Each structure stands twice: as C-alpha cells, then as structure tokens.
Simulated scan of single mutants.
Amino acid sequence: MNRHALPRLALAVALVACFGGPAALAQDDPHDLHQGHGQHAPALPTATDEADVDHSQHRPAAADDSGTDHAAMGHSMDHAGMDHSTMDHSGMDATAAPTQPRVPIPPLTDADRAAAFPELHHTMHHGDGVHGFLLVDRLEAWDGDHGTGQGWELQGWLGGDINRAWLRSEGEREGGETHAADIELLYGRAVSAWWDVVAGVRHDFAPGDSRSWAAVGVQGLAPYMFETQATAYFGESGRVEAVIEVEYELLLTNRLILQPAVEATFTGRDDADRGVASGLSSSEAGLRLRYEFTRRFAPYVGLVHERSHGGTADLRRDAGEPVHDTRWVVGLRTWF
C-alpha cells in the first residue's frame, strides 16, 4: 500500500465512526445536501418508526421526491390494484355535454298557455269613463291626367270599450268639383275582442242629389292583422249598396310604414242618376308609404289606381268620363 494512501484511509474511517456508519450516509437526501450547500441533513427515521414521525417537519414544500424510496415509506403506488369503477371520472371529460339540463324544464301545460294568452272578455276595461279618438287616415292631393285633386278619409269614435258612437267620412274633389262625399253616424258595439258591429245612417252629398241610407256592418281586425270594414247600405226605392275595405300596415322600420289598401263597391240595382249599374261598380287599390316623425304626424307618398267595372264603366264612357285613373299622391296621416 502506498504511504500516501494510509492517511486517507484513516480519515475515511474516522468520518464513518463519527456520523453513524454507512447506513446513515445511505439515508441522506442528496437534494437536501445540495440545497444546504454541503451541510448534512439530519437522518430520516427508519421504516419501523415512520408512523410516529410528522413528515411535514422534515421535507421542504418544494422538495423533489424523485430520489425518495416510496416503497420504504409504506406508500403503495400500484395502480393495477386500484378499483377504477368507484372513481368519479365525470369531471375529467371536458368535451362531454350533459344530456339533461341541471334544472329540468317542466312540460308546458294548458294552465301555462291560458296564463300567457288570456281570453279577453267584455268585462275587461281599459278604464272607466268616456274617451274619444279621431284618425285622419288620408288627407292628400295629386296632379293627375284629368287635373289636380284632393281627397280625404277619416273616422273617429266617442264612448267606452264596449259601446261607441262612430263618425266616418270620405270624399274626392277634382277640377274644382266634388265628385264624391259622404258622412256616416253609427252606433258600434264590441261583440268580441277584435270586432264591432255597427249600425246607423249615411248621407251622400255627391254624386247626384243628396240622399240618405241606413247602414249596418262589421269592422275590426281580421286574422293576420288586416283592418277590415264591411258595410251594407239600404236606400229609397229598394236601393242596396255594399262597400268592403281591407288595408294592411307593413312595418319596414319602426317609423317607415307601407300601407296597401283595397276597396270595392257593389250595387244592387242600376242608378242612372248616380252613374252606377248593378254588380261590381268600382274598385280602388292604393299603396302608400309614410314616415312617422311622431305617431301623430306622418306624411306619405303613394300610388292610387281607380277603375269602374261592368255597366258602370259603360255609363261613364257614355258620359265622356274616364273609366280608370292612376295617379301619384302626397298627403298626411294624423290623429287626435
């Protein structure tokens, strides 16, 4: 043996004797030695007394367990022996969607439908007392092939929710002459949520001599939001006339509204004084586009076409009057 090796061997024996022999050196945590910059960590307990030791006092929170012998510490990591059927894996699959809502939605019942859409009765009032309303639906002018002209159509009521007095009037002037004008005073009673029955009188100022009619009809809101008026008129000498008017409001925007309207007049017998014959005597179709600056102030532009039919058209030809007329109109719609 080399003489220089003897001192080294003696030093090694002394170190082993001082620190408890090879078993103690084998239990040193190499990471604790590295973190302590060369200082030796205290010896860990053996497997026999491990249950009595608090491991949290010997291992740092960020310690690396890669060098620790878990088998000696009594922790079994054998996953093959674990019962996975008892483990809840529902939170592990993030893509799986539940088949039912967390809070089940109850099925829709007849009671729910009745609550959402209550049936309106005559006993349901908007308020007690007498109220009134006046709508000037058409107040317009035009410059057509047969001269300038003006036209109007208005209706209003006074009363409550069930019983009302109605006022209706319409007419036309062209070339400084009144071609048609009438006024109606009617009593109306609501018979359903959307329909009224009306009865009263109508007085014609033109064409021809003034005359009066008894009137009866219905008015209201037909399915698909069509405003409808159907009125029959009974005059002297068995004269009968029926007028049907339907209009619809198409909201292009909250303020820009397109209003198509169709009106047809039927006559029961020939009336030469008024220039009408039996059957479908005349019809009118209009398309008006209005802009509501406010709900009460809405100017509009429109296109109107009028036509006479059957025997009425023949009577107008014989009198040298036009059978049909198409014109652009400008006007105002307002209400009070």
Rank of each mutant, 00 (worst) to 15 (best):
I105D: 10
R164P: 03
E119K: 09
W328N: 00
G147N: 05
G74Y: 06
L139A: 11
V216M: 15
A222W: 03
N254R: 14
S90Q: 04
Q39H: 14
V329T: 15
A180V: 03
N163I: 00
A230C: 09
G81P: 06
T95D: 14
A277I: 02
A80S: 14
H309T: 01
G176E: 08
G159F: 06
T46L: 05
V197L: 13
Q155L: 02
W335C: 02
P60C: 12
A41E: 01
T334E: 15
L167N: 02
L258T: 05
D145A: 14
A190G: 10
S85L: 09
L9K: 09
A5S: 12
L252F: 06
Y233P: 01
G81C: 10
A180P: 04
V16S: 13
E284P: 01
D32T: 01
G200V: 04
S212T: 15
D65Q: 00
A12L: 15
A63H: 07
D52I: 01
L258F: 15
S282N: 08
N2I: 10
D143H: 15
A165M: 07
H34T: 05
R168K: 03
P22T: 14
G129H: 12
L158H: 08
V243S: 05
L251W: 04
A17Q: 13
G302P: 04
S85H: 05
P207R: 02
H146D: 12
H70F: 15
M87C: 10
D318I: 05
A230P: 00
D182A: 12
V243A: 06
E241K: 15
R274F: 00
G129K: 09
E236I: 00
S210T: 11
E174S: 15
A319E: 15
P60D: 10
H34N: 01
P45R: 05
I244P: 00
D65H: 02
G220L: 02
L315K: 06
V323E: 10
A43D: 12
L108A: 13
M124R: 03
D54K: 00
L6T: 09
L186C: 13
S283P: 11
E292Y: 06
F205R: 01
R296T: 11
V191F: 09
G175F: 08
A24S: 11
G320V: 08
A72D: 08
D93E: 07
H131W: 03
E153V: 05
L303G: 07
L33F: 13
M73S: 06
G188T: 00
D112H: 12
L33Q: 00
M82Q: 07
A319C: 10
W142L: 00
H305N: 15
R189L: 09
H55D: 08
